[in-house]
Every structure is written in C-alpha cells, then in structure tokens.
Amino acid sequence: MVREDGKRNFVLVEDGEETSVFSGTYPRQAALKAARRLHPAPSPDDIDGKATLRLRERGTDRVHIYEGWAWTEAKDDDAPEWMDDYVTRANVSKRGIEHLEA
C-alpha cells in the first residue's frame, strides 16, 4: 500500500515471524536499511557470508527476497564531527519475489 509521500512499508520476515518494518520508495531501499542491521564485516574484502532478507510488502501478497551483506569503513573526511569514526555500509542483491497463498 503506497503512502501519500510515495513510500511503501516492508516487513522483515525472520523464521516465519514479522520482526521489523522498513519503508522506502522501492523494495531495494528497504532491503538496504535492513542489511545495515546485519553483523558487519571489518571491510568489503572480508565478507564471508551473506544473509537472506525476506521483505513482505504490506497490503500485498508479495515477499521480496534479497541477499544482503554489510561491512564497516572509516567515515568520509567531510563527515560531521559528531559522527562515529566508522560507519556501516551495506549492499543487497535481489533473488526474486514469492507470492503468499491466501
């Protein structure tokens, strides 16, 4: 279901339970937000595993399936002073869409 601002809500499904809600204009945007919560690797070169993220779009029967991973890196030189020295970055790759049965 699309909100007035054009964003949609996606619910993270873990072990059959819906745990968190992420919003975004596109499913990938919500998947990136969810991937940032994964345990990050020390660098992009040290990523050893990828997690499967299942995001159900609220108001529909669609479940978007992504493979996600995260890593930490030093903050940019122009980042604000209050920001931590390291930030978490994430990436996702879409694996498909499933439709729930009624």
Rank of each mutant, 00 (worst) to 15 (best):
V11I: 14
H64S: 02
F22Q: 07
R54W: 06
R8A: 14
H39D: 11
R58G: 01
I97V: 15
R95S: 08
W82S: 12
E18M: 04
R95A: 10
T52A: 06
D84R: 11
P80T: 14
G49M: 07
R58Q: 14
A90R: 09
A35E: 02
W71I: 04
V63W: 04
A30V: 05
V2M: 12
K50N: 15
R56G: 00
R95M: 13
R95F: 01
G59R: 06
K94N: 10
T25G: 10
D84Q: 11
M83I: 05
R8L: 12
W82V: 12
A41C: 03
W69A: 15
K33Q: 15
T88R: 03
R28D: 15
Y86P: 00
T52N: 07
R28C: 07
D48T: 11
G68F: 10
R54G: 02
L55A: 13
R56N: 01
W71F: 14
R89C: 14
I47P: 06
S43V: 00
R28Y: 11
G59E: 08
R36M: 10
P40M: 04
R58D: 05
G49E: 13
K33D: 09
T72E: 14
I97W: 00
D48R: 15
V92F: 04
V87S: 11
D76N: 12
D46W: 06
P27F: 04
I65T: 13
G24E: 05
A70Q: 04
S23Y: 01
A79M: 02
I97E: 09
R89G: 04
W82A: 13
I65G: 05
R62K: 15
E67N: 02
G16D: 07
E14A: 03
R28M: 14
G6M: 13
A74W: 03
T72D: 05
A74C: 00
H64N: 06
R37E: 13
P27I: 00
V21Q: 04
A74E: 15
P80K: 15
G59K: 08
V2D: 11
D78P: 02
E14N: 03
T25Y: 14
W71D: 10
W82D: 11
S93Y: 12
D48G: 13
A31G: 06
D76Y: 09
L55C: 12
P40D: 08
R36T: 07
M83W: 09
D15E: 13
T25F: 14
V11Q: 07
S93C: 12
L55T: 07
K94M: 12
Y66M: 01
F22N: 10
R28V: 11
D45V: 06
G16Y: 05
